[in-house]
Design a protein around this nucleic acid. Structure first.
Length: 424
DNA sequence: TCTGGGGTCCTAGGACCC
DNA sequence: TCTGGGGTCCTAGGACCC
Protein backbone atom coordinates (compact mmCIF):
# COMPACT_ATOMS: atom_id res chain seq x y z
CA UNK A 1 0.00 0.00 0.00
CA UNK A 2 1.06 3.55 -0.78
CA UNK A 3 0.22 6.60 1.30
CA UNK A 4 0.22 10.13 -0.06
CA UNK A 5 0.87 12.73 2.62
CA UNK A 6 -0.33 16.14 1.46
CA UNK A 7 0.11 19.34 3.49
CA UNK A 8 -3.13 21.31 3.69
CA UNK A 9 -2.95 24.75 2.02
CA UNK A 10 0.79 24.48 2.58
CA UNK A 11 2.09 28.06 2.16
CA UNK A 12 -0.79 29.50 4.17
CA UNK A 13 -0.18 26.88 6.87
CA UNK A 14 3.51 27.90 7.04
CA UNK A 15 2.51 31.53 7.60
CA UNK A 16 0.06 30.50 10.31
CA UNK A 17 2.70 28.55 12.26
CA UNK A 18 4.46 31.85 12.97
CA UNK A 19 1.27 33.86 13.28
CA UNK A 20 -1.35 31.67 15.00
CA UNK A 21 -3.76 34.61 15.24
CA UNK A 22 -4.50 33.90 11.56
CA UNK A 23 -6.09 30.53 12.34
CA UNK A 24 -9.75 30.52 11.29
CA UNK A 25 -9.30 33.69 9.22
CA UNK A 26 -9.06 34.13 5.44
CA UNK A 27 -5.42 34.15 4.28
CA UNK A 28 -3.82 34.03 0.82
CA UNK A 29 -0.22 33.79 -0.43
CA UNK A 30 0.71 35.44 -3.73
CA UNK A 31 3.13 34.29 -6.44
CA UNK A 32 6.34 36.16 -7.19
CA UNK A 33 5.78 39.76 -8.23
CA UNK A 34 2.65 39.65 -6.04
CA UNK A 35 0.76 38.35 -9.08
CA UNK A 36 -1.59 35.41 -8.48
CA UNK A 37 -3.02 33.41 -5.59
CA UNK A 38 -0.87 30.32 -5.09
CA UNK A 39 -2.20 29.23 -1.69
CA UNK A 40 -5.53 29.91 0.01
CA UNK A 41 -6.92 29.08 3.43
CA UNK A 42 -10.31 27.31 3.54
CA UNK A 43 -11.89 30.63 4.54
CA UNK A 44 -10.35 32.33 1.48
CA UNK A 45 -11.59 29.54 -0.81
CA UNK A 46 -15.09 30.00 0.63
CA UNK A 47 -14.96 33.69 -0.40
CA UNK A 48 -14.54 32.56 -4.01
CA UNK A 49 -10.86 33.47 -4.45
CA UNK A 50 -9.68 31.07 -7.19
CA UNK A 51 -6.35 29.26 -7.38
CA UNK A 52 -4.16 31.17 -9.83
CA UNK A 53 -6.49 34.18 -9.84
CA UNK A 54 -4.75 37.55 -10.39
CA UNK A 55 -4.74 39.44 -7.09
CA UNK A 56 -5.43 42.90 -8.54
CA UNK A 57 -8.80 41.73 -9.88
CA UNK A 58 -9.93 40.78 -6.38
CA UNK A 59 -8.65 43.84 -4.54
CA UNK A 60 -12.08 44.95 -3.39
CA UNK A 61 -13.11 41.50 -2.21
CA UNK A 62 -9.81 41.11 -0.32
CA UNK A 63 -10.31 44.44 1.44
CA UNK A 64 -13.99 43.90 2.19
CA UNK A 65 -13.39 40.59 3.95
CA UNK A 66 -10.10 41.66 5.56
CA UNK A 67 -8.17 38.87 3.92
CA UNK A 68 -4.57 38.69 5.09
CA UNK A 69 -2.31 38.77 2.03
CA UNK A 70 1.29 37.54 1.96
CA UNK A 71 3.97 37.82 -0.71
CA UNK A 72 5.63 34.46 -1.33
CA UNK A 73 8.38 33.58 1.18
CA UNK A 74 10.01 30.56 -0.43
CA UNK A 75 12.98 30.33 1.96
CA UNK A 76 10.46 29.82 4.78
CA UNK A 77 8.34 27.30 2.86
CA UNK A 78 11.38 25.32 1.72
CA UNK A 79 12.65 25.05 5.27
CA UNK A 80 9.24 24.06 6.68
CA UNK A 81 8.97 21.46 3.93
CA UNK A 82 12.24 19.82 4.92
CA UNK A 83 11.05 19.68 8.54
CA UNK A 84 7.86 17.89 7.45
CA UNK A 85 9.85 15.46 5.26
CA UNK A 86 12.34 14.71 8.04
CA UNK A 87 9.44 13.93 10.38
CA UNK A 88 7.83 11.64 7.78
CA UNK A 89 11.15 9.89 7.13
CA UNK A 90 11.16 8.66 10.72
CA UNK A 91 7.61 7.26 10.47
CA UNK A 92 7.94 4.89 7.50
CA UNK A 93 10.72 2.74 6.05
CA UNK A 94 10.64 4.35 2.61
CA UNK A 95 9.72 7.83 1.45
CA UNK A 96 9.55 9.61 -1.89
CA UNK A 97 9.54 13.39 -1.58
CA UNK A 98 7.22 14.21 -4.46
CA UNK A 99 6.93 17.99 -4.21
CA UNK A 100 7.41 20.79 -1.70
CA UNK A 101 4.21 19.75 0.11
CA UNK A 102 3.69 16.07 -0.77
CA UNK A 103 5.39 12.75 -0.09
CA UNK A 104 4.58 9.14 -0.88
CA UNK A 105 5.27 6.54 1.84
CA UNK A 106 5.47 2.77 1.64
CA UNK A 107 2.78 1.52 4.02
CA UNK A 108 3.38 -2.16 3.27
CA UNK A 109 4.74 -3.08 6.66
CA UNK A 110 2.03 -1.61 8.86
CA UNK A 111 -0.79 -4.07 8.27
CA UNK A 112 -0.45 -5.69 11.68
CA UNK A 113 -0.52 -2.33 13.47
CA UNK A 114 -3.44 -1.19 11.33
CA UNK A 115 -2.61 0.90 8.26
CA UNK A 116 -5.26 3.55 8.87
CA UNK A 117 -4.32 3.83 12.54
CA UNK A 118 -0.69 4.39 11.64
CA UNK A 119 -1.76 7.07 9.15
CA UNK A 120 -3.69 8.87 11.88
CA UNK A 121 -0.56 8.68 14.03
CA UNK A 122 1.43 10.27 11.17
CA UNK A 123 -1.08 13.13 10.94
CA UNK A 124 -0.82 13.86 14.66
CA UNK A 125 2.97 13.60 14.74
CA UNK A 126 3.56 15.95 11.79
CA UNK A 127 1.17 18.47 13.32
CA UNK A 128 2.91 18.27 16.70
CA UNK A 129 6.48 18.41 15.35
CA UNK A 130 6.03 21.10 12.70
CA UNK A 131 2.66 22.79 13.18
CA UNK A 132 1.61 21.84 9.65
CA UNK A 133 -1.74 20.04 9.16
CA UNK A 134 -1.69 17.18 6.64
CA UNK A 135 -4.17 14.89 4.88
CA UNK A 136 -3.39 11.30 3.98
CA UNK A 137 -4.70 9.11 1.17
CA UNK A 138 -3.92 5.39 1.06
CA UNK A 139 -4.33 2.98 -1.83
CA UNK A 140 -2.76 0.01 -3.65
CA UNK A 141 -1.26 2.33 -6.31
CA UNK A 142 0.09 5.87 -6.24
CA UNK A 143 -2.76 7.09 -8.44
CA UNK A 144 -5.35 5.58 -6.08
CA UNK A 145 -3.52 7.06 -3.07
CA UNK A 146 -3.75 10.45 -4.78
CA UNK A 147 -7.46 9.95 -5.36
CA UNK A 148 -7.92 8.93 -1.73
CA UNK A 149 -6.16 12.08 -0.51
CA UNK A 150 -8.61 14.19 -2.50
CA UNK A 151 -11.46 12.45 -0.73
CA UNK A 152 -9.73 12.88 2.62
CA UNK A 153 -9.61 16.64 2.08
CA UNK A 154 -13.06 16.98 0.55
CA UNK A 155 -15.03 15.02 3.10
CA UNK A 156 -14.64 15.94 6.80
CA UNK A 157 -16.09 12.53 7.68
CA UNK A 158 -12.66 11.01 6.95
CA UNK A 159 -10.94 13.30 9.50
CA UNK A 160 -7.88 13.68 7.31
CA UNK A 161 -7.27 10.00 6.47
CA UNK A 162 -8.93 8.08 3.64
CA UNK A 163 -8.00 4.53 2.76
CA UNK A 164 -9.09 2.70 -0.38
CA UNK A 165 -8.37 -1.02 -0.14
CA UNK A 166 -11.49 -3.16 -0.77
CA UNK A 167 -12.64 -3.45 -4.41
CA UNK A 168 -16.09 -1.98 -3.70
CA UNK A 169 -14.57 1.00 -1.86
CA UNK A 170 -12.34 1.65 -4.85
CA UNK A 171 -15.23 1.36 -7.33
CA UNK A 172 -17.32 3.80 -5.34
CA UNK A 173 -14.47 6.28 -5.04
CA UNK A 174 -13.69 6.10 -8.77
CA UNK A 175 -17.34 6.67 -9.65
CA UNK A 176 -17.31 9.87 -7.60
CA UNK A 177 -14.06 11.18 -9.12
CA UNK A 178 -14.40 13.50 -12.14
CA UNK A 179 -12.02 12.72 -14.99
CA UNK A 180 -10.19 16.05 -14.61
CA UNK A 181 -9.42 15.30 -10.95
CA UNK A 182 -7.35 12.22 -11.75
CA UNK A 183 -3.61 12.64 -11.23
CA UNK A 184 -2.17 13.05 -14.73
CA UNK A 185 -5.33 14.26 -16.50
CA UNK A 186 -5.15 17.95 -17.28
CA UNK A 187 -7.42 20.34 -19.14
CA UNK A 188 -6.70 19.07 -22.63
CA UNK A 189 -7.06 15.36 -22.01
CA UNK A 190 -10.11 16.02 -19.88
CA UNK A 191 -11.79 17.62 -22.88
CA UNK A 192 -10.77 14.78 -25.19
CA UNK A 193 -12.11 12.13 -22.80
CA UNK A 194 -15.42 13.96 -22.23
CA UNK A 195 -15.95 13.97 -25.99
CA UNK A 196 -15.48 10.17 -25.90
CA UNK A 197 -18.19 9.97 -23.22
CA UNK A 198 -15.70 9.22 -20.46
CA UNK A 199 -16.64 11.37 -17.48
CA UNK A 200 -15.46 9.63 -14.29
CA UNK A 201 -12.38 7.76 -13.17
CA UNK A 202 -14.51 4.60 -13.24
CA UNK A 203 -15.37 5.24 -16.91
CA UNK A 204 -11.66 5.57 -17.70
CA UNK A 205 -10.72 2.40 -15.83
CA UNK A 206 -13.30 0.49 -17.92
CA UNK A 207 -12.59 2.09 -21.30
CA UNK A 208 -11.07 -0.08 -24.08
CA UNK A 209 -7.29 0.01 -23.72
CA UNK A 210 -6.84 0.57 -27.44
CA UNK A 211 -8.92 3.75 -27.34
CA UNK A 212 -6.97 5.05 -24.33
CA UNK A 213 -3.69 4.42 -26.12
CA UNK A 214 -4.91 6.12 -29.26
CA UNK A 215 -5.76 9.38 -27.48
CA UNK A 216 -3.55 9.46 -24.37
CA UNK A 217 -0.55 7.37 -25.47
CA UNK A 218 1.65 5.50 -23.01
CA UNK A 219 0.95 7.67 -19.96
CA UNK A 220 -2.78 7.02 -20.45
CA UNK A 221 -2.34 3.25 -20.39
CA UNK A 222 -0.26 3.55 -17.24
CA UNK A 223 -2.92 5.68 -15.62
CA UNK A 224 -5.65 3.20 -16.53
CA UNK A 225 -3.69 0.29 -15.05
CA UNK A 226 -3.06 2.26 -11.87
CA UNK A 227 -6.78 3.01 -11.52
CA UNK A 228 -7.47 -0.73 -11.86
CA UNK A 229 -5.15 -1.33 -8.92
CA UNK A 230 -2.11 -2.56 -10.87
CA UNK A 231 0.86 -0.56 -9.65
CA UNK A 232 3.02 0.83 -12.50
CA UNK A 233 4.68 3.72 -10.69
CA UNK A 234 7.16 2.58 -8.02
CA UNK A 235 8.36 4.78 -5.16
CA UNK A 236 11.35 6.82 -6.31
CA UNK A 237 13.57 6.69 -3.27
CA UNK A 238 16.49 8.54 -4.82
CA UNK A 239 15.83 11.76 -6.65
CA UNK A 240 17.25 11.40 -10.16
CA UNK A 241 19.68 14.18 -11.13
CA UNK A 242 18.03 17.15 -12.84
CA UNK A 243 18.21 17.39 -16.63
CA UNK A 244 17.75 21.14 -16.81
CA UNK A 245 17.80 24.10 -14.46
CA UNK A 246 15.93 27.34 -15.11
CA UNK A 247 15.86 30.72 -13.36
CA UNK A 248 13.32 33.25 -14.59
CA UNK A 249 11.34 36.20 -13.27
CA UNK A 250 8.64 38.61 -14.29
CA UNK A 251 9.79 42.21 -13.91
CA UNK A 252 8.20 44.71 -11.55
CA UNK A 253 7.92 47.07 -14.55
CA UNK A 254 8.50 46.79 -18.27
CA UNK A 255 12.15 46.86 -19.26
CA UNK A 256 13.27 48.22 -22.65
CA UNK A 257 16.94 49.17 -22.30
CA UNK A 258 19.39 46.49 -23.40
CA UNK A 259 21.68 47.20 -20.43
CA UNK A 260 18.88 46.51 -17.97
CA UNK A 261 17.97 43.22 -19.63
CA UNK A 262 21.66 42.37 -19.58
CA UNK A 263 21.74 42.89 -15.81
CA UNK A 264 18.67 40.72 -15.29
CA UNK A 265 20.04 37.95 -17.53
CA UNK A 266 23.45 38.05 -15.80
CA UNK A 267 21.67 37.70 -12.45
CA UNK A 268 19.66 34.68 -13.63
CA UNK A 269 22.80 33.14 -15.16
CA UNK A 270 24.64 33.57 -11.83
CA UNK A 271 21.77 31.84 -10.02
CA UNK A 272 21.70 28.99 -12.55
CA UNK A 273 25.44 28.45 -12.09
CA UNK A 274 25.02 28.39 -8.32
CA UNK A 275 22.20 25.84 -8.61
CA UNK A 276 24.42 23.75 -10.91
CA UNK A 277 27.20 23.70 -8.33
CA UNK A 278 24.74 22.70 -5.64
CA UNK A 279 23.40 19.93 -7.88
CA UNK A 280 26.91 18.76 -8.76
CA UNK A 281 26.33 19.05 -12.50
CA UNK A 282 28.09 20.66 -15.43
CA UNK A 283 26.09 22.25 -18.26
CA UNK A 284 26.96 22.47 -21.92
CA UNK A 285 24.26 24.80 -23.24
CA UNK A 286 22.72 28.04 -22.03
CA UNK A 287 19.33 29.24 -23.27
CA UNK A 288 17.98 32.75 -22.73
CA UNK A 289 14.37 33.80 -23.31
CA UNK A 290 12.68 37.19 -23.11
CA UNK A 291 9.12 38.26 -23.76
CA UNK A 292 6.65 41.09 -23.48
CA UNK A 293 3.41 40.84 -21.47
CA UNK A 294 0.91 38.62 -23.26
CA UNK A 295 -1.87 40.24 -21.20
CA UNK A 296 -1.27 43.66 -22.70
CA UNK A 297 -3.36 43.53 -25.86
CA UNK A 298 -2.45 47.08 -26.87
CA UNK A 299 1.33 46.73 -26.77
CA UNK A 300 3.37 45.20 -29.56
CA UNK A 301 4.29 41.65 -28.61
CA UNK A 302 7.70 40.07 -28.92
CA UNK A 303 9.06 36.77 -27.67
CA UNK A 304 12.28 35.02 -28.45
CA UNK A 305 14.73 32.49 -27.18
CA UNK A 306 18.33 31.88 -28.10
CA UNK A 307 20.89 29.25 -27.19
CA UNK A 308 24.65 29.52 -26.81
CA UNK A 309 27.01 26.58 -26.37
CA UNK A 310 29.81 26.58 -23.83
CA UNK A 311 33.32 25.55 -24.92
CA UNK A 312 33.31 22.78 -22.37
CA UNK A 313 30.93 21.53 -19.66
CA UNK A 314 30.88 24.12 -16.90
CA UNK A 315 29.29 25.25 -13.65
CA UNK A 316 31.24 28.49 -13.59
CA UNK A 317 29.24 31.69 -13.10
CA UNK A 318 31.50 33.76 -15.35
CA UNK A 319 31.44 31.39 -18.36
CA UNK A 320 27.69 30.85 -18.05
CA UNK A 321 26.97 34.58 -17.73
CA UNK A 322 29.11 35.25 -20.81
CA UNK A 323 27.28 32.61 -22.84
CA UNK A 324 23.94 34.03 -21.64
CA UNK A 325 25.03 37.47 -22.78
CA UNK A 326 25.80 36.11 -26.27
CA UNK A 327 22.41 34.40 -26.41
CA UNK A 328 20.64 37.59 -25.31
CA UNK A 329 22.44 39.64 -27.95
CA UNK A 330 21.21 37.22 -30.61
CA UNK A 331 17.52 37.68 -29.73
CA UNK A 332 17.08 41.20 -28.34
CA UNK A 333 15.10 43.61 -30.44
CA UNK A 334 14.83 47.32 -29.67
CA UNK A 335 11.53 49.10 -29.20
CA UNK A 336 9.72 46.59 -26.98
CA UNK A 337 8.76 46.73 -23.30
CA UNK A 338 9.86 43.37 -21.95
CA UNK A 339 8.09 41.91 -18.94
CA UNK A 340 9.90 38.66 -18.30
CA UNK A 341 13.24 36.97 -18.92
CA UNK A 342 14.88 33.72 -17.97
CA UNK A 343 18.01 31.63 -18.29
CA UNK A 344 18.04 27.83 -18.57
CA UNK A 345 21.02 25.50 -18.58
CA UNK A 346 20.98 21.95 -19.93
CA UNK A 347 23.10 19.20 -21.47
CA UNK A 348 24.36 18.02 -18.11
CA UNK A 349 27.21 15.76 -17.11
CA UNK A 350 28.23 14.99 -13.53
CA UNK A 351 31.00 17.11 -11.99
CA UNK A 352 33.74 14.91 -10.52
CA UNK A 353 36.15 16.22 -7.95
CA UNK A 354 39.55 17.00 -9.45
CA UNK A 355 38.46 16.19 -12.99
CA UNK A 356 38.23 18.87 -15.63
CA UNK A 357 37.11 18.16 -19.15
CA UNK A 358 39.34 20.21 -21.41
CA UNK A 359 38.92 21.44 -24.93
CA UNK A 360 40.68 19.33 -27.56
CA UNK A 361 42.19 22.42 -29.12
CA UNK A 362 43.05 24.55 -26.10
CA UNK A 363 44.81 22.53 -23.41
CA UNK A 364 46.60 25.55 -21.95
CA UNK A 365 43.51 26.32 -19.89
CA UNK A 366 43.85 23.67 -17.19
CA UNK A 367 45.46 26.03 -14.71
CA UNK A 368 42.92 28.76 -15.36
CA UNK A 369 40.08 26.26 -14.91
CA UNK A 370 41.40 25.17 -11.54
CA UNK A 371 41.65 28.76 -10.33
CA UNK A 372 38.14 29.48 -11.53
CA UNK A 373 36.81 26.46 -9.62
CA UNK A 374 38.47 27.70 -6.45
CA UNK A 375 37.02 31.14 -7.00
CA UNK A 376 33.50 29.69 -7.26
CA UNK A 377 34.02 27.59 -4.14
CA UNK A 378 35.10 30.69 -2.27
CA UNK A 379 32.16 32.69 -3.57
CA UNK A 380 29.70 29.97 -2.46
CA UNK A 381 31.34 29.73 0.96
CA UNK A 382 31.18 33.50 1.51
CA UNK A 383 27.54 33.63 0.40
CA UNK A 384 26.62 30.72 2.63
CA UNK A 385 28.13 32.47 5.62
CA UNK A 386 27.14 36.08 4.99
CA UNK A 387 23.96 35.68 2.93
CA UNK A 388 23.35 35.11 -0.77
CA UNK A 389 24.37 38.00 -3.01
CA UNK A 390 27.19 39.11 -0.69
CA UNK A 391 29.68 38.17 -3.42
CA UNK A 392 28.42 38.25 -7.00
CA UNK A 393 29.39 39.16 -10.56
CA UNK A 394 29.64 42.87 -11.25
CA UNK A 395 27.28 42.33 -14.20
CA UNK A 396 24.50 41.23 -11.84
CA UNK A 397 22.07 43.90 -10.77
CA UNK A 398 18.51 43.61 -9.53
CA UNK A 399 17.76 47.29 -8.95
CA UNK A 400 15.93 48.22 -12.14
CA UNK A 401 13.78 45.17 -12.76
CA UNK A 402 13.23 43.57 -9.38
CA UNK A 403 9.80 42.00 -8.81
CA UNK A 404 7.27 43.53 -6.43
CA UNK A 405 7.13 41.92 -3.00
CA UNK A 406 5.22 44.16 -0.69
CA UNK A 407 4.13 41.84 2.10
CA UNK A 408 6.69 39.17 2.68
CA UNK A 409 6.78 37.66 6.16
CA UNK A 410 10.06 37.17 8.03
CA UNK A 411 12.43 34.43 6.85
CA UNK A 412 12.39 33.40 10.46
CA UNK A 413 13.82 29.88 10.12
CA UNK A 414 16.68 30.67 7.73
CA UNK A 415 17.96 34.19 8.53
CA UNK A 416 19.18 34.96 12.06
CA UNK A 417 18.21 38.63 11.91
CA UNK A 418 14.63 37.76 11.08
CA UNK A 419 13.76 35.50 14.02
CA UNK A 420 10.34 36.41 15.36
CA UNK A 421 8.58 35.96 18.69
CA UNK A 422 5.43 33.87 18.41
CA UNK A 423 2.63 34.18 20.91
CA UNK A 424 0.59 30.99 21.01
C1' DT B 1 -0.73 49.90 -12.57
C1' DC B 2 -1.33 45.06 -11.48
C1' DT B 3 -1.78 38.04 -14.34
C1' DG B 4 4.32 32.94 -11.20
C1' DG B 5 8.15 29.72 -11.47
C1' DG B 6 10.36 25.32 -12.15
C1' DG B 7 10.26 21.05 -13.71
C1' DT B 8 9.20 16.12 -16.38
C1' DC B 9 7.81 12.91 -20.11
C1' DC B 10 6.38 11.76 -24.76
C1' DT B 11 6.11 12.08 -29.80
C1' DA B 12 7.27 13.28 -34.41
C1' DG B 13 10.37 14.53 -37.79
C1' DG B 14 14.83 15.40 -39.66
C1' DA B 15 19.71 14.46 -39.96
C1' DC B 16 22.94 11.42 -39.45
C1' DC B 17 25.53 6.68 -38.85
C1' DC B 18 26.89 1.80 -40.66
C1' DT C 1 11.64 0.13 -64.38
C1' DC C 2 13.99 -1.06 -60.50
C1' DT C 3 17.31 1.44 -55.15
C1' DG C 4 17.44 -1.74 -47.60
C1' DG C 5 17.30 -2.07 -42.86
C1' DG C 6 18.24 -0.77 -38.38
C1' DG C 7 19.68 2.36 -35.52
C1' DT C 8 20.90 7.08 -32.65
C1' DC C 9 20.73 11.89 -31.61
C1' DC C 10 18.69 16.32 -31.61
C1' DT C 11 14.99 19.67 -31.55
C1' DA C 12 10.46 21.51 -31.18
C1' DG C 13 6.10 21.27 -29.44
C1' DG C 14 2.54 19.67 -26.53
C1' DA C 15 0.90 17.57 -22.60
C1' DC C 16 1.28 17.11 -17.67
C1' DC C 17 2.74 18.05 -12.46
C1' DC C 18 3.36 21.06 -8.12
Amino acid sequence: MFALIDCNNFYVSCERVFNPALNGKPVVVLSNNDGCFISRSEEAKALGLPMGGPAFKYRDLLRKHRVTVFSANFPLYGDMSSRVMTTLGALAPEIEVYSIDEAFLDMGGFRRLGTAEHAAHICRTVQRHTGIPVSIGIGPTKTLAKAASRLAKKNPRHRGVCMLSKPDEIQEALASLCIGDIWGIGKQWSKTLQSLNIHTALDLSRAPAQMVRQHLNTPGIRMQEELKGHSCLPLELVRPPKQSICTSRSFGRTVSAYEELQQAVATFAGTCAMKLRREGSLALTVTVFIHTSHFDGAARQCRGSGTAALNQPSQDSISIARAAERALASIWQPGYGYKKAGVAVSGFSPAMAGVTELSLFRNDRAEQEKRRQKLMQTMDAVNLRYGSGTLRLAAENTETWKPRQKQRSARCTTVWEEIVTVRV
